[in-house]
């Protein structure tokens, strides 16, 4: 297991958060300046060619916050850099939450608050965790037990979890489709 730079990227162009295919120069293509008068999109991609994994996660979070007021509230409050590394495909992303906007980077960027490392299946399970009382992820149903077991067995690692439990829970809520 290792950190990675941008790594491999999908060989396809993806529409930007603004919906155009000719991005302006600069690292950020999604959120627009309030002065421009354009609608500000919450999710943007740092790389000119977001990887398939980056666009999937970005798309998932975008859809989640659009359909859930509670998730949107979490999204508006979260200020953290979260890495997700999928160990069996050697690909990852960094989610840079900036209180109401998210920039998705291909690969792991430096200075992350937490980094989740797991196999593809486990990453999908994380996004299937139910959210229970007080916004806590549910670890006692089938999906939750599976995730907890992987955490215990070291097949799911969350670097930086100690001291960032609240961030882990908030990210899980935003990430979950439940």
């Amino acid at each position: 297991m290792h950190d990675a730079g941008p790594g491999r990227v999908a060989r396809r162009k993806l529409a930007t958060a603004k919906g155009d295919s000719t991005p302006p120069p600069g690292p950020l293509r999604g959120p627009t300046s309030p002065a421009s008068g354009e609608v500000k999109k919450p999710v943007a991609y740092a790389d000119p060619e977001p990887s398939a994994f980056a666009s999937m996660l970005g798309g998932l979070i975008d859809a989640n916050i659009e359909t859930s007021r509670a998730k949107h509230r979490d999204f508006d409050e979260l200020d953290a850099s979260v890495g997700i590394w999928v160990t069996d495909i050697d690909e990852g992303v960094t989610l840079e939450f900036q209180r109401g906007t998210l920039v998705v980077h291909n690969g792991l960027t430096p200075k992350r608050d937490i980094t989740i490392r797991a196999e593809a299946d486990t990453v999908m399970s994380l996004s299937n965790l139910k959210i229970g009382m007080f916004g806590m992820p549910v670890y006692y149903d089938e999906v939750g037990r599976g995730v907890a077991l992987k955490l215990v067995r070291g097949r799911l690692r969350i670097d930086g979890m100690l001291g960032n439990i609240a961030t882990v829970n908030t990210v899980t809520r935003i990430f979950s489709v439940r």
């Binding site: 999937m56 798309g59 999928v86 299937n128």
Partner: peptide, 25 residues
């Protein structure tokens, strides 16, 4: 090739509502 991995790697291209497909992984 595992289909989930294939989708995450962009080897299989998916079009449709992502939260729904994730819910039915």
């Amino acid at each position: 090739l595992d289909a989930t991995k294939g989708m995450l790697q962009g080897k299989l291209k998916l079009k449709g509502d992502l939260p729904t497909i994730v819910r039915y992984t």
